[in-house]
Amino acid sequence: MSLAKYYEVAKIHILEKISYSWNQVFYGLIIGIVLFVFVHIWQAIYAGKLTIEGFSIAQMIWYLALAEVIVFSAGGQGIERIGEDVKSGIIASSLTKPINFVGKEFAVLLANFIYTFLISGFIAFAVAYFLVGPIPFHFANLPMLLVMIAGAAVLNFTLVIFFGLFAFWFEDVSSIYFIYQKLIFIMGGMLVPIDVYPIWVQGIVKYLPFSFITYMPAKLFVHFEWSAFLTGMIGQLAWILVGAMLLKVIYDKGIKRVNINGG
């Protein structure tokens, strides 16, 4: 199997995204506005305290910035898009090509991730810098952080494709997207770091896949620890394996249910 075709699929998606660049900038600006609001909320919550659960306000804002950018770039809408392709029969055109469907979707999500991450990341980090200034960051930790973000992306893609393929059984997967997104917001620690939750909740939430998508990389970014990096990586790998197995099962079963309208 040649990887060149998947690279090319990713490339053409970036090309198409570029013809919509203003959209991306617009979304990036929304992240900026959200961060601006967050800063004010957190200033009220900190109310003179220097740290909350080990986070200074600057760390908190940078944490939220990275968590937001990851969620934004993760392409959860992919659940709806894949679902729509399955339902409308667009999937038929890709099934007649010599390309693996899951691989193709993976390439599409990856292209979307890289592109969105660069643009919205630039805006979000600029806003964070402007609002709370820099935080100490050792560039020697950058490779580990990138590995963690890549793992988060791959885990997320696996789940997105998995849930999107539910469309072989359900009429409409947009409700699944809605729930998935909210789980990432809350259990993934996008709205507040998981550390703020009661201990017993943390005990559960930390082991669910969602925290490995947003919480782990964002926390590592503002507060690097080798042990956190290792746990994060092991957790991501474990969940990616589980996700990939589930994905294979659902794909093999689903593909036999292709039921195209207008036959």
Partner: peptide, 28 residues
């Protein structure tokens, strides 16, 4: 080769040459 009259395989917002180049890679 398959052509479904009601479904489009060309990338809608890009010129056809981009889809051709992609397909040349997909078909190796």
């Amino acid at each position: 080769g398959v052509i479904f009259g009601q479904r489009q395989q060309l990338w809608h917002h890009l010129p056809p040459i981009d889809t051709f180049n992609l397909f040349s890679k997909i078909y190796e």
